[in-house]
Design a protein around this nucleic acid. Structure first.
Lengths: 347, 347
DNA sequence: TTGAAAGCGATACCAG
DNA sequence: CTGGTATCGCTTTCAA
């Protein structure tokens, strides 16, 4: 009892291979009676196409592009490194990954990059950027041209993208709040460092954090947040004033990038044994801060998983093929010093 | 500039396709001069075999077996469900997964299952069981017969298995200890519920937990643990005595299975607002306990990931092919109510 | 509208 | 030892 093939369908339906293929791929030029006959055979045999063989015959190539902000922050660097390493592996799976960097916090740059995508040479694109009206329209245009689009890290729901690859940032913010509430040992104030007002992921984290904080930990007051624009130097310079203004600071939630500035400030002016610090993304810098005790916890998302998931979804979308939902869900990882993966793992 | 194929090698080396294949697959009957010539061509062209095409031609089937304890605990059930669901997907990728249940806590049953594996019909096996001398030897014999073996969930290092698919349980124990130390708000005693002395994973968790607890939280005393044998009913019956003996109980670390018994006891005799409870594995039951507040945190490992990773490693081992280390590392997941994945995700 | 036949990249059998 | 060739499951001309 073998798995049925196109040949079996052809035999059972009493037609040729070519006709079976036409029906299978919804190509024109087949009488509806014939289509019906073939479909009956397919159903009867329980046929499922062998994608590997199909791609071989088709010499199908998947050409995928990642549009990322051009910045030196470690999270984006990790993403780039994982794209590069996946690219090597995928080369042998008829897939090419290409990274295109655009000016950060610049919607127009993203739109330009999107509009430059030619459906003749590109099958899909993963976009990491702010949800502005122009970006939204750029995504819509790309999809209209037949290019598969997934939003990466920060969702673009209004753009009608094919998928979102990233964590539920509202839940991530709530998670940070819960950890903060349980870790902090006395009443006081909490500082939130955000990135950009344009970034949907930052906003969602902030919203989730504030909501849980105010409803469940009334002893902890979240003060007006500072907008660090993912810039370590800017953050470092803003902190002294905050510390001066709030002597009863008991916690810091760094919800965006720019952690090095925070770490530098804390380690130069500290230690602050009672200050609970929670940040995002496991990177060499945040890992070191966790090890040294400067950070108490990290909320993270696996960059390797993000890249693999984005490529799988882009390919599946391009092929109109199904995919495994559970495999594509990106987890909200919590890392303490104790459960950090070994450094080597992400090199 | 296309990717080079066997034909290119044949052309460049001036030999036939058949000879190229012999060299590629290290088959006998080729003069070393010829081998050398072919290898030069391969290196020169930077050839990499197209696995999809190779598998197609070879009509290669991967027949894999999972040996699991026959028990109703939710973690094993989740594993079984994920094996079944993966089996369906993998059917179209020339791979069959089969589950074989054996008596729990019975090394001989595992050995019998291992010895029954015929290399003619089975390519690889994933074993979830205790590390006893007999199991160790059974694994060695299976490998000697040419069957790929991975240890699942609980490592079998002495058996020289091909890979371990699971978390670092020592680190998991330390993680639980850290959470316990940070969540508990006053001095008191901590109860650890273990499973079986035979289970290496349980032992490692216990060791890691105790070590960090005693070195960093001297105010919290870990009392002699109870061995629940993953049996909810047994656990439920043992708890009253423990609670009676230690009125200053401030935390419980349930390091193995049998959580339903713990939950039932706590919900029937509770609530215990100040008792911190940390358990293992996200399942419908533990998820509910987390939601209701009976559990404070869950340490987990993704069963879907375990199954996918085991099958990838088994196939790679059978093919002597390389694999992506970072993708196979199983994370120690920490779940709070806030970052639990949606229920639907693991259905 | 339909079919015959030639690949895709690799393997394997049968000769020589 | 080495080469020719059919084949794997599917796609894609080219004719009919």
């Amino acid at each position: 009892m073998q798995k049925p093939t196109v040949n079996d369908i052809a035999r059972v339906a009493g037609v040729s291979l070519a006709t079976v293929d036409r029906v299978l791929n919804a190509r024109p030029g087949v009488r509806s009676v014939t289509i019906e006959r073939v479909n009956r055979a397919i159903a009867e045999l329980g046929y499922v196409r062998d994608t590997a063989a199909a791609n071989l015959a088709r010499r199908r190539l998947y050409r995928l592009v990642f549009i990322l902000p051009e910045t030196a922050n470690e999270f984006v660097l990790a993403l780039e490194r994982d794209i590069a390493s996946q690219a090597e592996t995928l080369l042998h799976q008829r897939t090419t990954l290409e990274k295109r960097s655009v000016l950060p916090f610049d919607p127009q740059a993203i739109v330009a990059a999107l509009d430059a995508l030619d459906p003749e040479t590109i099958d899909g694109v993963a976009v990491f950027g702010p949800e502005t009206p122009s970006v939204r329209d750029g995504v819509k245009r790309a999809r209209a041209r037949g290019i598969a689009v997934v939003a990466l890290v920060s969702d673009l729901p209004s753009s009608d993208r094919d998928h979102f690859v990233g964590i539920d940032n509202m839940a991530a913010g709530r998670t940070a709040a819960r950890l903060m509430g349980r870790f902090v040992r006395r009443a006081g104030r909490i500082l939130v460092i955000t990135g950009s007002r344009l970034a949907r992921d930052h906003l969602e984290r902030r919203t989730g954090f504030d909501a849980l904080m105010s409803s469940e930990y009334p002893d902890l007051k979240v003060v007006a947040s500072i907008e660090g624009r993912d810039d370590p130097e800017l953050i470092r310079r803003m902190l002294p004033d905050v510390f001066a203004a709030y002597p009863d600071l008991v916690g810091i939630y760094s919800s965006a990038a720019g952690n090095p500035g925070l770490v530098q400030f804390l380690e130069e002016t500290g230690p602050y044994p009672d200050l609970v610090v929670i940040a995002h993304e496991l990177t060499p810098g945040s890992r070191a801060a966790l090890t040294s005790g400067t950070f108490d916890a990290i909320i993270s998302q696996d960059t390797g998983h993000l890249v693999r998931s984005a490529t799988r979804l882009l390919r599946a979308t391009a092929d109109r093929a199904p995919f495994d939902v559970t495999q594509e869900r990106i987890r909200i990882d919590i890392y303490l010093k104790e459960n950090m993966p070994q450094q080597g793992e992400e090199t």
